[in-house]
């Protein structure tokens, strides 16, 4: 079997309950079921996770690095978008 025929999948692992899934890497697999097992065998050998998501890489659309300037730089001087100019009452614990 030619390995290059198997599509690429991206793997996301939740390290413990309550945390979000984080991208940990990629792998090759013929379908979703195999991708899930491969992810288990490749990325959770050292107790890294309690939940796995896999998604075929072709379904992920990435921003274009050539457009990084117009995409991201305009946010650099908009400090007023951070809610740091408000006084938070002491009784409010979680902000």
């Amino acid at each position: 079997m030619n390995n290059s025929e198997w599509p690429l999948w991206e793997v996301f692992i939740r390290s413990k309950q309550g945390l979000d899934h984080k991208h940990v890497g990629s792998l090759h697999a013929a379908d979703a079921a195999m991708a899930m097992q491969n992810a288990r065998d490749v990325y959770t050998r050292r107790l890294e996770g309690v939940s796995i998501w896999v998604v075929e890489s072709r379904h992920i659309h990435a921003s274009n690095p050539d457009e990084a300037a117009e995409f991201f730089d305009p946010a650099a001087d908009k400090v007023y978008r951070h809610p740091t100019f408000y006084d938070v009452p002491e009784s409010i614990k979680h902000m």
Binding site: N3, W6, L27, H28, Q37, D41, V42
Partner: peptide, 12 residues
Amino acid sequence: GPVLEQDLALSN
């Protein structure tokens, strides 16, 4: 192993 993923699965 035939592919890296199965090499690891067999070792596991």
